[in-house]
Design a protein around this nucleic acid. Sequence first.
DNA 1: CGCTGCAAATTGCCTGACAACTTGCCAAGA
DNA 2: TCTTGGCAAGTTGTCAGGCAATTTGCAGCG
Lengths: 245, 245
Amino acid sequence: MPSDEPDDKPITRSVRGSGRRLRGAVAHYLGTAIVSGQIAPGETLSGEIANAEALDVSRSAYREAVQVLTAKGLVESRPKAGTRVLPRSRWNILDPAVLAWAFAAEPDVAFVRDIFELRAVVEPAAARFAAERRDKDDIKAMREALAKMKRHTLATEAGRMADREFHDALLRATHNDAMIALSASISAAVSWTTEFKQRSRALPRDPVPDHAKVCDAIAAGDPDAAAAAMRTLVDLALEDTRLSM
Amino acid sequence: MPSDEPDDKPITRSVRGSGRRLRGAVAHYLGTAIVSGQIAPGETLSGEIANAEALDVSRSAYREAVQVLTAKGLVESRPKAGTRVLPRSRWNILDPAVLAWAFAAEPDVAFVRDIFELRAVVEPAAARFAAERRDKDDIKAMREALAKMKRHTLATEAGRMADREFHDALLRATHNDAMIALSASISAAVSWTTEFKQRSRALPRDPVPDHAKVCDAIAAGDPDAAAAAMRTLVDLALEDTRLSM
DNA sequence: CGCTGCAAATTGCCTGACAACTTGCCAAGA
DNA sequence: TCTTGGCAAGTTGTCAGGCAATTTGCAGCG
């Protein structure tokens, strides 16, 4: 046996940003490989021992990573058959991690379209519910996030975080856990696209007035106005994103 | 040390219905315990070695089960701190498995309300998209499912499966992957409640005409009519479910 | 009172081995 | 030739034990 290779393969080991466990790195590696299509549905991964060795991790770490993928519906493994990639239709694409993997690589335009269509359906309805059920704390949280958005802009990371905070506060105002969970996923995906918009060109529109309109309508308890304002907000966002892709 | 206990604890081992792996049983056990509130958010599970021993499984199997829960946002584990249950807001409640666990125990009424509200938002919109984009195959699939629903009734398992097939076909007709994934989760949840309805009393309404109306509107390519028909369908389902709880 | 460093406890990862379960082949029979 | 049955091999599934990494909480110090 020759000694060993210097450090050619630690593809996953080098990505461990402190908080990230080794199995997380492996899961990220495999997850992006699958979602990006490098490992097409129907294909079967090479055996655990071989693959674990190739990634330079133990079988346990590798297996725990595969369990994560299984939990998200990306793969399925059976004795003697190996673990194979499931068809797209069985993926939990609304899972935050899967969305993150999808946007880590080049995001598919059709997929972005799908996400925005869903957003266009859910968010106006959420705004309507929020207008009917919000309480004082909800309004306060939204106003604060809006102020932060105004201070920083969407060009900064702090500004984008304020944007997410605004939408999160709006969702919490619906007092509907299912809607909160869903739009949390969507918002995450949308924030990735926001970064793309910034990267490609300076964004021509000031988003604060549109957000303020939504906020005011919700605070006033006007469901129709809130839904309408949110609808135009989403439409504009879709327009901007479409231009930059 | 006395010899050993006969078989008091195999709480998880006995549930392995062939296709179900051991770690799956453990995940199911812990998942339901968490979702049903037996292990409240904020609490920390006892150590891996202790817990694995209590469930009479190896540490690896237990750990792989915990990875599944982690992937679904139910728990988070860090060295020295133990693995603790995350607040509800971080759960992926739209994950099919989590939904199944939620309905395995007594389903929370507030939660069912949330699901139906989301359904009332998404499904009509899905019907609208379907009316715009459906092709010949989509219509055929819907018609066939509808026929099957008519033959069997919702009182039989076959009938409920046909109901799911109808909704699945409708969703595929939207040609929007995000919407398909979302409503697949919702439909699963809804089918649990359908079983409840059947269990509590004979259902007074024949659901076939309502479904047929949706189907016809989509086949005719009339988005507004499809959305309206679906809206009444969901409203009626909500009404029935509300009565039986 | 605040801060710094240390030590313990818990998870994270590794190794090696055996069991369980499928799958696919192969042979025997209709 | 087609079907059916069993058999063997190969892959994942589970187990056991040990060591390393990391974080928390405390204790001691400034």
